[in-house]
Design a protein around this nucleic acid. Structure first.
Lengths: 146, 146
DNA sequence: ATAGAAGTTTAGCACTAGCTAAACATTAGT
DNA sequence: ACTAATGTTTAGCTAGTGCTAAACTTCTAT
């Protein structure tokens, strides 16, 4: 190449955004699982593998593997052939996730998006909104009838 | 279990949302790459591996592997040791991605989020907004000074 | 009390996305 | 024209997330 090509002053800033997205993806699955487990416990006092598999739309074996990792991360407790429960950390993550989900979905509804779409999009978006954006959404929601 | 536990009427709808998110993730990487390649071509007439690696914040070898897949998908063309270019489909995807990115980022700014956060969050969110949500964001943007 | 249904786990496969280190090709500068 | 720097590719590793099929437990109903 002829001339020293400049990298652009913001090369690092740009890559930071992508890194953040990759990091988010790692937490995403854990958040989805604990939120779902929390919902199931609230609905029926316990969460079982097949229910999780069904709601997530994945195979049973996939759930087992994921739960093993969640246990290693200290988010859930489980014993063989028994229901799954959340640890303190698990509840913290679940509640935080559900709060985010509620705000994002409500926000999309307030924006005028129809409810089926709002639910689907919220599921994808919730893991990528920073605290600041969430606050902005909540503010908007408070003003525009949430 | 004692009584037939009901699955809940919306089990399928719920799992559909998660399936959608997983599907989005598969396209996400492709979109990020072609968008970035398009930006590089616009800026400096050609896109090279190291530039992509730097901006994405990943290793060179990772880029090589990803580009191979993109080529198989018919999104880019490349020859060994040469720069990378987009196919017609590649441009289509890149332009669509950049358009989404612009709307989402602009929307977050209009919402009152600061610019650094808006950029980072937009990067994560852009792949998860449906056409309908995007339209709603564009509408909001048009009204609230975009 | 026991057979069959339902649920759970294990084993083994495939693919994606990341990494480092080493080999190879191209380009620039003397 | 050659050497050194730069850029690119290959090889081989790790870990995550998905699958199916088979084995094993637990629960329910006769």
């Amino acid at each position: 190449m002829a001339l020293a090509r400049k990298k652009g002053p913001s090369a690092k800033l740009r890559s930071a955004a992508f890194k953040r997205v990759r990091a988010d993806h790692q937490v995403e699955l854990a958040e989805d699982y604990v939120e779902l487990i929390a919902d199931l416990i609230d609905e029926r006092a316990e969460a079982r593998g097949t229910d999780i598999a069904m709601r997530l739309g994945v195979a049973n074996a996939t759930v087992v593997k994921a739960l093993k990792r969640l246990q290693e991360q200290g988010l859930i407790t489980q014993e063989p052939y028994r229901a799954i429960f959340l640890t303190g950390d698990g509840w913290k993550m679940a509640d935080n996730g559900r709060r985010k989900h509620r705000i994002v979905e409500g926000f999309l509804l307030a924006l005028g998006v129809n409810s089926a779409t709002a639910r689907i999009d919220a599921e994808g978006i919730e893991h990528h909104v920073s605290a600041e954006t969430l606050k902005a959404m909540a503010r908007f929601l408070a003003r525009n009838g949430g």
